[in-house]
Design a protein around this nucleic acid. Structure first.
Length: 331
DNA sequence: TTGTGTTTTATTGCCTCC
DNA sequence: GGAGGCAATAAAACACAA
């Protein structure tokens, strides 16, 4: 461990001398037929200086003569004695890998982003780099890849969030719109019933002679029980799909999402039989009571802000906008 | 030319695995 | 305990606007 950290670019012994000779060859003759030839683009060879700085010059002073002679040869050929002298008095400098080296490493990284020891040495040989440099390059490359991957993941999540947010906003708007609609209808209904209540006294004597225009059921409440009105204006499938938020699930009359009185009414043919013209006075009384005081489960807690949003497929709260049966009855 | 921001190469310390 | 990976970081190289 300790040895690994001390000037690793020069202390690595796995194939180091081989690399040096390869490096020398590749740097000397870019147009030769050596294995590295495919790595070099014609005209790019002058830029292939990256590896010469890969050896620490501090360590260079303590390294063997073979290495020293390599640098001497290289420097003399490339830069002359001045540069050689410069090297001895310069602190170590980083050099970037050449375009071709990077390209080669990138291709290798695409194949496998982890580096086995054998592969590392092989790559180092082919590129004329220290195995340690190859390892460092892969390590940094993995770090870059990870960063990019995180950015991609972030973008994907961001897009997903934006989409969901848009859907949510649309549903909120729709909810508010429907809420408003329900309130309007409620007001109208109450107003209607109020008017009806006012005229009821005068009409009560003549009412028995006329059948009700719409079938409305007023169930006689048992003793001590508040009378309730079953409003049956929806089709059967509307009833069965009445798991709407319009019904307060906390209501004692609410069973399995379908109002019990609605089910009762649906079972009975009474509400749909127009020939009940001879309805009793009691029934009419009950009707009047019920309509004058619409039960709370008809318009439950609409002002409640946190009632749940309806699913997108049932955004009409169980009252299809097109189906005006319910509301036309109310009018 | 120079200041500044970005990218690339390399180091360090810590951690895990065998 | 050594080898190798990773995160954090330093520092050189590079790009580019002013």
């Amino acid at each position: 461990m300790a040895g690994r950290r001390v000037c690793p670019t020069n202390t690595s012994t796995d194939g180091g001398s081989n690399n040096l000779s390869l490096l020398l060859r590749s740097q000397r003759v870019a147009s030769s037929s050596e294995p590295l030839d495919p790595l070099f683009i014609p005209g790019s060879s002058p830029s292939f200086l990256g590896t010469r700085s890969m050896v620490s010059f501090e360590d260079f002073h303590r390294t063997n003569r073979a290495n020293r002679s390599f640098f001497r040869t290289f420097d003399q050929e490339d830069n002359g004695d001045e540069d050689l002298d410069e090297y001895f008095h310069q602190p170590e400098k980083k050099r970037r890998l050449t375009v071709d080296q990077v390209r080669f490493l990138e291709k290798s990284f695409e194949v496998e982003n982890k580096l086995e020891p054998e592969r590392k040495i092989q790559l180092a040989k082919e590129l004329g780099l220290q195995p340690r440099q190859v390892a460092i390059w892969f390590q940094n490359r993995r770090a870059r890849w990870k960063t990019k991957q995180l950015e991609k993941d972030y973008d994907t999540l961001q897009a997903s969030y934006n989409s969901l947010r848009a859907d949510y906003d649309n549903l909120l708007k729709e909810k508010d719109k429907l809420k408003e609609e329900v309130l309007q209808h409620t007001d109208k209904l109450l107003m209607k019933e109020k008017e009806k209540g006012n005229s009821e006294v005068s009409d009560v004597n003549t009412l028995s002679q006329e059948p009700p225009q719409k079938p409305v059921v007023a169930e006689a409440a048992s003793e001590g029980e508040e009378s309730k009105v079953s409003l049956v204006a929806c089709k059967q499938e509307d009833i069965s799909s009445a798991k709407s938020d319009i019904f307060d699930s906390d209501s004692p009359h609410y069973t399995d999402g379908v109002h019990s009185s609605l089910l009762e009414a649906a079972d009975s043919s009474y509400p749909f039989e127009p020939d009940q013209s001879d309805s009793s006075q009691d029934e009419e009384d009950n009707l009047s009571k019920g309509l004058l005081h619409p039960p709370s489960y008809i318009f439950p807690k609409l002002e409640d802000d946190d009632y749940s949003d309806p699913p997108a497929s049932s955004c009409n709260f169980g009252f299809p906008v097109e189906d005006h049966a319910f509301w036309s009855w109310a009018y």
